[in-house]
Design a protein around this nucleic acid. Sequence first.
RNA 1: CGAGGUGUAGCGCAGCCCGGUAGCGCGCUUGGUUCGGGACCAAGAGGCCGUGUGUUCGAAUCACAUCACCUCGACCA
Length: 586
Amino acid sequence: MKRSHYLIPTLKEKPNDIEQVSQVLMFRAGMLKKVQNGFFMYLPLMQRSLKKVSDVIRKHMEAADSSECKFPILVSKETLEASGRWNAFGKEMFKLSDRSENEFAISPTNEEAACFAAECFVRSYKDLPFSVYQIQQKHRDEISPRNGVMRAREFMMKDAYSFHADEACLDAYYNRVHKAYLAIFNELGLDVVAVSADTGAMGGSGSQEIMAVSPDGETDICRCGSCGFAANAETVPCVAEGSGVRGQGSGNADEIKSFIPSPESRTPSPEKKHTPNARTIDELVRFFGKQTKDFLKSVIFNADGELVVAMVRGDREVNDVKLKKILDAKTLEMATAAEIGKTQKTVVGFVGPVGLKGFKIIADYEVAAMRDFIAGANEKDYHLTCVNPSDFTAQYADLRFATTGEKCPACGAELQFAKATELGHIFKLGKRYTDKLDLKFTAKSGDLQTLTMGCYGIGVERTVASVVDQHHDDKGIIWPVNVAPFTVDLITVDTTNAEQMRVSEKLYTALQKKGIEVLWDDTDARPGSKFADCELIGFPLRLVVGRGVVNGKVELVDRASGEKTEVEVADCVKAAATKLRSPAKK
RNA sequence: CGAGGUGUAGCGCAGCCCGGUAGCGCGCUUGGUUCGGGACCAAGAGGCCGUGUGUUCGAAUCACAUCACCUCGACCA
């Protein structure tokens, strides 16, 4: 392609509404244009990189025996209600209706369609396993679209679905896709880590996220340097300091009881103190002059309409993902002051467990190990001091977020925290959807059995953006050869010079003939701005046709290393091809 | 959804406090000089100052409302 006919609106300055490094570079390189909040125009360079990434994904999916298809983008309300996701996905879905008032959603993912395929085509175990995938636009009405194309309301997703006769087969296939994902990201030059994850609105028994570690990442992950444990921070099981108990769920009741002293074994009783205007932990710390860990933090949640009190030590945070799982709730939100006020049993800012009736109380394991702490008195402007776990009853569970200094649940070494971008997510859905949709097949035994299912996603734009994030310098992007929109930038320094133009034209044709993706910068811009654009856009190679042509020489520059070589015009196509096959290391 | 911030030329911004018919840099057009790291000179084009209502003789500027966008938070108990 010739630059003079190609739309590449590079920007000299940083767009004012973008902060993330990868996004600033992509906008400046003329790959993207924002249309509306969360919606972007993909300009030619973006399209080319997306295609490169998609093709790498396709190659590895096909190698994993998954075949490409395409499902409809609109899904009927009826279908989504059958799987229970009309509500589970709720406001995240864009909804619309047809002329007969039938309601549809623009699919946020396509489990239902995949299930329909299984329903149509799977009769017996002989039809299993099978796996299909698509690379298709997805729409999600995000609460707050952010960071450009990293969290948009319309994006490309590779979503794959597999169906199996049993769990063992699913496990094996899941591991295959896991490997395929690592191979995909490796081929794209991305440094990624697989972490165990929450299944969220998808549901299912197990899942892992493939994360690109980045200071601009939106997710916290934990990694253990000594045993290799890695997990999304929100799922990390926490050790209860002081009690030694660790775990998820709500078990260990007996173990916990042994840490709670009987009321007779200690002297002071809870004492009511006037604490005007001290509601938050910070205000209480100032009021009492004690440490945050000497207080009990009580947070009221609305779980499927029922109010639940969650309690953690004052210096901890309630982990809503864990709480949701413990309660097995479909929706979980913080209760509003109005909802709490209506109960007349407690007052926001002064919530505490002692004497609190009519609420389900769930406390973090650590609370059992707290002694003589301060908690709300369920009365405006009053707190209780000298409260102990024996003063109330609660269900104990692992309820808090992992935090700095947290120990590895696998080996006990200290966990390292990092920010990361979620590029892929794989789920063992098991029978969660197939049960609801009643998908059966005839097993070898002749019995009718329910299908077992897995699903596997990759965010395509995010992947492109992460490549930019991991491959750039202060001048711009440094594309790995196999994701680069073009691999060679052919720069004619002086377009008014007939000899330079003649040689450029010749090289342009020769490069194309050789199958090299070349952009010829045939514009009459000044050399300085051509070079700057070349580095900003990040072509792996730059071929400069300039003053050297009188001696039959052109210049070949490697973007990553900055290495410059003078090459004979006659040899330069071959030299470029060689370099592209084995690009110099930085 | 909550808090804060920003909307002025294609892009990046100043002007607003203290009302008096809009400015800078880049980009764009034309002519000229340049021509290997974002040139220089000259002459131009380009704005419903997000939108609406109000205050005022007069509003980019003040007030209210509204919309859009950005950042942080979604954990405040």
